[in-house]
Design a protein around this nucleic acid. Structure first.
Length: 278
DNA sequence: ATCCAGGGGGGCT
DNA sequence: AGCCCCCATGGA
């Protein structure tokens, strides 16, 4: 269960697919798009499957999808994620979400993620109280830039990656890695290749014989090898290396997502199985 | 106690 | 441009 925009959604594994519900109701196409399970998404997976180095990771993470998330929420979420751990990131985002509008649903009340203007209005002290630490002024300043329209995130959807990067890097607290995350997860920039410590390690080991490469090198390599599918490739590299790191018995997430209300990760989803229920 | 967490900013060269 | 150090906070 989670929230997408102003909709409360619920996804559950059902056989080989996913049962999708939303309130207010959404079309199968809407769900498939959010879940990153459109025919275009499947085509990208097909292309990556031809890469012998990536193939095992694809097989191991069959249901891994890139959710198409909302630009502002994604920006705030990944800004918070910088030099932070997942548990605390989720706690902060949940706390932030309580400032958003209440949304009723058959499954109980949830909250929309607060818009940029709402976040910009929160005093820095309040943000610190939520656990943001030194990121508090960054989030506030970024919220202000987005709320004022100086940076128009929605207009960046589908824009060329260099342009997207330049715009995002103007936001305080947003550097190259976070910018690529926003581009990939919210702005449909399939070629964005976020390089965090894990991906850097994975690329170094798998493609450079263990030599420590720099983020720029890793990214150039990824773009050359996978082109506009680099972002999806990144997800498989990331989850493969994280799964290994968490090794025995750690609970593993199969899909990528930041969700401020603990929405379940969707482990298996295919367009043909996605349906909205009454 | 020390290190680390899906980095980024600012100052220095 | 590249390199270095610091940055809140909390769990391991």
């Amino acid at each position: 269960m989670g929230v997408v925009g102003r909709r409360v959604v619920r996804y559950q594994s059902a056989g080989a697919g996913v049962e999708a519900e939303a309130f207010p109701r959404a079309t199968p196409r809407w769900h498939a798009r959010y879940l990153g399970a459109t025919p275009e998404d499947d085509a990208a997976r097909g292309r990556l499957r031809a890469d012998p180095v990536l193939a095992p990771a694809l097989a191991a993470h069959e249901g891994l999808r890139i959710l198409r998330q909302e630009p502002w929420e994604t920006t705030a979420a990944f800004l918070v994620s910088a030099n932070n751990n997942v548990l605390r990131i989720e706690g902060i985002l949940r706390a932030l979400a309580r400032r958003g509008d209440a949304l009723g649903s058959p499954w109980g009340e949830r909250h929309a993620f607060p818009d940029a203007a709402t976040v910009a209005r929160l005093p820095e002290s309040r943000l610190r109280a939520l656990g943001l630490g030194y990121r508090a002024p960054f989030l506030r300043a970024t919220a202000r830039l987005v709320a004022s329209g100086d940076v128009d995130l929605d207009s960046l959807v589908g824009a060329p990656l260099p342009e997207v990067r330049e715009a995002l890097l103007a936001l305080p607290g947003v550097g190259p890695k976070v910018a690529d995350c926003i581009a990939l997860f919210a702005l449909e920039a399939g070629g964005a290749f976020p390089v965090d410590r894990w991906v850097l390690r994975a690329v170094s080991e798998a493609f450079f014989a263990g030599r420590e490469v720099k983020p720029r090198e890793a990214e150039a390599f990824a773009r050359a090898r996978w082109g506009d599918d680099a972002g999806l490739a990144q997800q498989f590299l990331f989850h493969a290396v994280r799964t290994r790191a968490n090794a025995p018995g750690a609970r593993r997430l199969s899909a990528t997502q930041n969700d401020h209300q603990g929405q379940e990760r969707v482990a298996r989803s295919a367009p043909s199985w996605t349906r909205s229920s009454p």
